[in-house]
Design a protein around this nucleic acid. Structure first.
Ligand code: MN
Ligand code: MN
Ligand code: ZN
Ligand code: ZN
Lengths: 218, 218
DNA sequence: TAGTAAATAGTAACCTTTCGCAAGTCAATC
DNA sequence: GATTGACTTGCGAAAGGTTACTATTTACTA
């Protein structure tokens, strides 16, 4: 089994090296596609696998998320941000980590993986800003990690009713305004709160948030 | 937002603790289902997420594979097997890993994750047995990691033709016997070789392997 | 105890990754 | 130079794991 250096493979390797980042397969795919528009995502995956088997790149299997690939071969560890999932290199000396005396339970050790986890400087800044803002607003529940701001029709209906209403309103009011059942309104509000589009300044009273208004007008 | 201790949640927590293993969501689901047959897998996922957010359990997000959950809250690291993906606890003292002097690039450190990677004793044994067997057989390419031995109709056709033929035969012969095009036969042979059902004792000649015969008669 | 918020079951959708196939490319052999 | 087969690729489909949505039920609390 020998490797052939095809154009695709070469380009994938070159783009990964050029980026100097820890790219995921699809990020790399987007980059390579600009140069080879017909390349397939499967080819990118296949080659990243092959290249890392051949030790020409490194595969980073960090923390249950998307795999990332690293063109740097020298031994090094990584630090990553819990919030923005940025991954950066970390240089650690032999003194810091020394596993020679650890009881490895009969395992034949082939390597180790060390991740330092934290909040990157950018996210720290962002958070302190947001916190200041939130304190003024009275503490919305934003930033829950919901991936999408997509609204269902009924959610939109509820949100629209809430926008028209001035000041916090009860789910009963929304039900009356929309014609939906109270129970259903309650469900929609829960979902919207999770997305950060609605908050509850007073118990049992709800209001649309700034984010909610933005989401409505998209 | 407050937590309620529902029956489902309690059971999930109890079963995880009882197992003393690093279970995945679906493994836990199978266990809980025996006691609460109507529980939903989504409930298990939701609760594992909630419980780990509440620091009542730990989420292990190891190596880009399935998430696993750990009821042990004390700080400890893990060792895992590249082959069977078993995960075991690993006790490491403060002397072994000391990151206090590492340059963390401005990150606010919240934790670290150390995985030692290797081959577990069981897999070591299994491998040495298999290698001995392979050496005797003359080196078939089995054990490539293909997950399935499922044969497509055309693969089966090729394999059957190969079985009837005595001794190694060329892809041309198979093409003639099956009525398929030579190129297609070549493709099927490649796939079958990858599965370990065919090998090539002489260049350009192929024969069905023992595994191949077994697979045909399933 | 009534009323509200949180949780559930069931299912659909989602996202990342892998697979199978038909076709193409290339180097080694004839 | 033609043939052969190993290695690749693009494409489509599917697997596998996880999350989202919604009607309904349950736990809590005022
Ligand atoms: Mn790196
Ligand atoms: Mn553990
Ligand atoms: Zn960050
Ligand atoms: Zn193992």
């Amino acid at each position: 089994m020998q490797l052939r250096m095809t154009n695709q493979r070469e380009m994938i390797l070159r783009e990964l090296k050029k980026s100097k980042k820890h790219l995921s397969a699809d990020e790399l795919y987007e980059r390579v596609k600009k140069i080879m528009p017909r390349i397939s995502l499967a080819t990118v995956y296949r080659n990243l696998e092959i290249l890392s088997d051949a030790s020409m790149i490194r595969k980073l299997e960090i923390s249950g998320r998307q795999k990332r690939f690293d063109s740097e071969l020298e031994d090094h560890d990584h630090i990553y941000c819990i919030q923005c999932h940025r991954i950066e290199n970390l240089d650690i000396g032999d003194k810091e980590v020394n596993l020679t005396e650890v009881d490895t339970r009969g395992y034949a050790i082939t390597g180790r993986r060390l991740e330092v986890i934290g909040l990157c400087p950018r996210c720290q800044k962002k958070n302190s800003k947001n916190n200041a803002k939130k304190a003024k607003q009275g503490g919305s529940t934003m930033g829950c990690g919901c991936k999408k701001g997509v609204l269902s029709d009924e959610q939109k209906q509820v949100l629209e009713a809430m926008e028209k209403c001035d000041g916090p309103c009860a789910s009963k009011d929304i039900a009356a305004a929309t014609g939906l059942e109270t129970k259903q309104v309650s469900c929609r509000i829960t979902a919207l709160k999770k997305k950060g589009y609605v908050d509850s300044p007073v118990r049992c009273k709800y209001a649309i948030t700034t984010e909610g208004k933005i989401a409505l007008n998209v």
